[in-house]
């Protein structure tokens, strides 16, 4: 019986497992091998250098900077788009016809190709002809030179990240809210509970599974961010938007240091893995 169960289970897992082994695990292990070489991606010979790439990584200020930029980007985009998405979904609740229009507007960025969106944002942020700064000037506010300012470039790419991500959170929350049982709310109304209290003590707890979902998907998306920053700033100015994927891409494909790039990727993987395990441990202790 047990044997048969195992066989069925393996058959069911097989499609996903085979694809995982063939197209993720195998290339991943292969990249570990590359990380121990000084290969440029072109040369017929891959020179073995041991752990030299990893040792170099420790003294690399660019890598450390990139780590903190990635953290700030991931946390801000994930958190802000989740909170904003929840609030918007809440406002859109039971709003009939007009909610269709709002939802479409919020979702449009999600279906727009990132490459296309980034090109447009690049000009919206322009200090001369950019609509954002022209608007700020009209309000007599100083318009920063967004993408060229070491302080403003990261906020700018975060804004685009949120813009691109918000619609997904809105839709998933809207769906979640629409399936909440109305009976509890009616009972609460009878007891004279205020609107805010209902949100605080009923909606938010009831929405917890949805929130987890939005946060996880947001995290997966944000930590891998590449396309729009590549176009908007290429990681600059002075590395202020140089997220990990970009650093990895530039080292591997622009500077011909594929070995080093692979070492960056592996180190990043180890760090995320360690943090995730730590978080699981903490959660388990709490429960």
């Amino acid at each position: 019986m047990r044997n048969r169960q195992a066989r069925t289970a393996y058959l069911l897992i097989a499609p996903a497992l085979l694809l995982f082994i063939g197209f993720t695990a195998y290339p991943f292990i292969w990249s570990a091998q590359i990380s121990l070489t000084s290969w440029d991606g072109l040369n017929a010979v891959k020179k073995f250098v041991g752990f030299q790439n990893y040792i170099n990584l420790f003294g690399d200020a660019e890598f450390r900077k990139s780590l903190s930029v990635t953290t700030i980007y991931t946390v801000s985009v994930t958190l802000i788009s989740t909170i904003l998405g929840f609030l918007i979904a809440l406002m859109l609740q039971r709003r009939g016809k007009s909610s269709v229009i709002y939802r479409t507007i919020f979702f449009s960025p999600v279906v727009t190709a990132t490459v296309a969106a980034a090109v447009v944002w690049q000009l919206l942020f322009d200090p001369y002809v950019g609509v954002i700064d022209l608007g700020l000037k009209a309000l007599h506010l100083p318009g920063p030179n967004w993408l060229s300012d070491t302080h403003w470039a990261l906020p700018a790419v975060i804004i685009v990240g949120i813009w691109k991500r918000l619609g997904f959170a809105v839709i998933v929350y809207a769906a979640g809210l629409s399936s909440l049982p109305t009976s509890c709310y009616e009972a609460a109304d009878l007891d004279g509970v205020s609107g805010w209290q209902k949100v605080r003590y009923m909606t938010i707890p009831l929405m917890r599974p949805v929130t987890t979902l939005v946060l996880i998907t947001g995290f997966i998306d944000a930590i891998q961010v590449f396309d729009h920053i590549f176009i908007l700033t290429s990681g600059g100015p002075m590395g202020s938007t140089n997220v990990m994927s970009l650093l990895l891409f530039n080292q591997g494909f622009k500077l011909f240091r594929l070995g080093y790039a692979s070492a960056i990727g592996w180190t990043l993987f180890m760090i995320i893995l360690a943090l995730t395990m730590l978080q699981w441990q903490i959660r388990r202790r709490h429960e």
């Binding site: 322009d126 200090p127 001369y128 002809v129 030179n145 993408l147 060229s148 300012d149 100015p237």
Partner: peptide, 13 residues
């Protein structure tokens, strides 16, 4: 001159 993104000349700036 300004330390910033490339493209001001194209825009007549």
């Amino acid at each position: 001159a300004t330390a910033g993104q490339w493209g001001a000349f194209d825009k007549g700036q």
